[in-house]
Nucleic acid binder design. Structure first.
Length: 508
RNA sequence: GGCGGCGUAGCUCAGAGGCAGAGCACCCGGCUCAUAAUCGGGUAGUCGGUGGUUCGAUUCCACCCGCCGCUACCA
């Protein structure tokens, strides 16, 4: 089974472009696998414990559960807006998760990897949080600019230090475990510098999962959060499903949370005797005007700012086509408009429009299922379709840009096919009626294949095109190895409809 | 400081030891079914700098310049 996850997001804010990026990529890749006919389980969710949640709830005079119940709706709304079709949405406050956390921590405890010790360090009373010496500004809290106190509390620690060699061995034996390579280098370097044990509990906090062996402590939020990946896979009480679903095919994460996923999480799994995820796939940040987008700065953009103009498909296409998964990417309104108009309005949408228009005008929407095996023009189209189908496999490596570039080879070839065969001229001469049927059939067939191949990236537009083509079912039904192959367009009744991607006019 | 990465056409980027690539933008031409669309052709780069290895380097190595990431508990 292809089990693919996004991080679970911390619901202290609405999802912005960065969180949406991870989720869109995960959804497109999951759809790709479904299209291929694979069993897929895609997961996203929210991370609802921790001090910040308690704080945010207090500010609003709510209890934490009430607050997260409310804000989690923002996430559902956003994912609905972007046509994210996750199989599951996990919340860390759900019983299926909290019990799973206790089960895993009990296993680690039983393995002898937990011990109690005193944690001591600079502590800001206002923040209710510890800092490291490096974080302090002139010995004061960086947030409140107030003197810190040396505080100590008894915590439970996890023997992370015992797993350095095994982690390095695993990374060496599985070069694709952390991608891209530059991130793997960082992880290796970090481990080689030596791992310290980490505290996995908090005694002062009650908003969390109680430790099974000492209910006066709750699990540290990060430890709590990571376990979601197995909670959703049936770790707690569904052995058959867990065996089929775990280990995950890929955890998609932003570069800021690699360490948790590539070091701490695997070590926890090793301790509990569970297999490790196949891959930690790391992406960069989206930069706006060259600067990182953050919650605090004014450059934050939300999906809901863009979808009214570009639609869910224009949104998804832009980020999948223009952002490389590994490195940081840039976002600009101008770039997004340019990409939309060039690829979606001009190349793809206009192709759909011109072909369906010809079919309606000259054949009343009913083109016979006749194809030419001999014509050179069709041979070129067929070759382009085969290349596009092949390129779609780039989704398996998260190379969404390359996958879509490949699909556009078919779109361009179909436009060129129209120029080469000139069906509007064939229609003027009754003697070429047979050739017109063949040409229109091939043109429609190229649209059918394009609908299939664009479905992972743009499901809504693909399904709309599918119904205009008079086809039953969905372009996502697959299997790709059959539906993605260029053949003869079946007899059906096609209807032109409104432009699929209306051009966005920029104001001068 | 240590480790790692990046710097390629006006823009966004791909590439790889052997005559520099794509898309966009721009210019010229064709077509008119189509969303001022599309098709064909073209202009355009001392591949950050300097040295070195090599028959040959943009690609490998060294150093330099510029930018960036990591160097532990922010979920």
């Amino acid at each position: 089974m292809i089990y693919i996850t996004t991080p679970i997001y911390y619901p202290n804010d609405r999802p912005h472009l960065g969180t949406a990026y991870t989720t869109v990529v995960a959804d497109a890749v999951a759809r790709y696998w479904r299209l291929k006919g694979e069993a897929v389980y895609s997961l996203t969710g929210t991370d609802e414990h921790g001090l910040k949640i308690v704080r945010a709830a207090e500010e609003r005079g709510m209890d934490p559960q009430e607050w997260v119940d409310q804000i989690v709706e923002r996430f559902h709304e956003t994912w609905d807006l972007l046509d994210i079709a996750s199989d599951d949405f996990i919340r860390t406050t759900e019983p299926r998760h909290t019990a799973s956390v206790q089960k895993l921590l009990a296993a680690i405890h039983a393995a002898g990897d937990i011990y109690e010790a005193r944690y001591e360090g600079p502590y800001c009373v206002s923040c209710e949080a510890y800092y490291t010496d490096e974080e302090l500004v002139d010995g004061a809290c960086p947030v409140h600019d107030r003197p810190v106190e040396i505080h100590a509390e008894d915590n439970y620690f996890f023997r992370l230090s015992a797993y350095g060699d095994r982690l390095l061995a695993h990374i060496e034996a599985n070069p694709g475990f952390v991608t891209p390579e530059t991130r793997r280098n960082e992880v290796v370097s970090f481990i080689e510098h030596g791992l310290d044990d980490i505290s996995v509990s908090r005694a002062a906090l009650s908003w969390g999962v109680p430790l099974p062996w000492d209910e006066s402590h709750v699990a540290y939020v990060w430890v709590d959060a990571l376990i979601n990946y197995i909670s959703a896979a049936g770790y707690l009480d569904d052995e058959a499903r867990f065996a089929a679903q775990w280990p995950a095919w890929a955890h998609l994460v932003g570069k800021d949370i690699i360490r948790f996923h590539a070091v701490i999480w695997p070590a926890m799994l090793m301790s509990a005797g569970l297999p490790l995820p196949r891959q930690i796939a790391t992406h960069g940040f989206l930069l706006v005007g060259g600067a990182k987008m953050s919650k605090s700065s004014a450059n934050q953009i939300l999906p809901s700012d863009l979808v009214p103009t570009f639609g869910p498909d224009g949104y998804r296409y832009h980020f999948l086509r223009d952002v490389s998964f590994g490195p940081d990417g840039n976002f600009s309104w101008e770039g997004m408009v340019a990409r939309y108009n060039a690829d979606l309005a001009n190349d793809y949408g206009n192709l759909v429009n011109r072909v369906l228009n010809l079919a309606e005008r000259f054949r009343d929407g009913e083109v016979p299922a006749v194809a030419s095996e001999a014509a050179a023009e069709e041979a070129a189209l067929r070759a382009a379709a085969a290349g596009a189908l092949e390129a779609l496999a780039e989704f398996e490596e998260f190379r969404t840009k390359q996958a879509l570039e490949g699909v556009w080879r078919l779109v361009r070839a179909a436009n060129a096919f129209m120029e080469a065969t000139e069906p509007w001229k064939l229609a003027k001469d009754p003697a070429t009626a047979g050739r017109l049927d063949e040409v229109l059939n091939a043109a429609l067939e190229s649209l059918r294949v394009a609908a299939v191949l664009t479905w992972p990236a743009m499901p809504r537009a693909a399904e709309s095109l599918w119904s205009r083509l008079g086809l039953a079912g969905s372009p996502g039904d697959g299997p790709l190895a059959e539906t993605g192959v260029f053949g003869t367009f079946p007899a059906s009744r096609v209807a032109k409809g409104d432009p699929l991607f209306p051009r966005i006019e920029t104001e001068a």
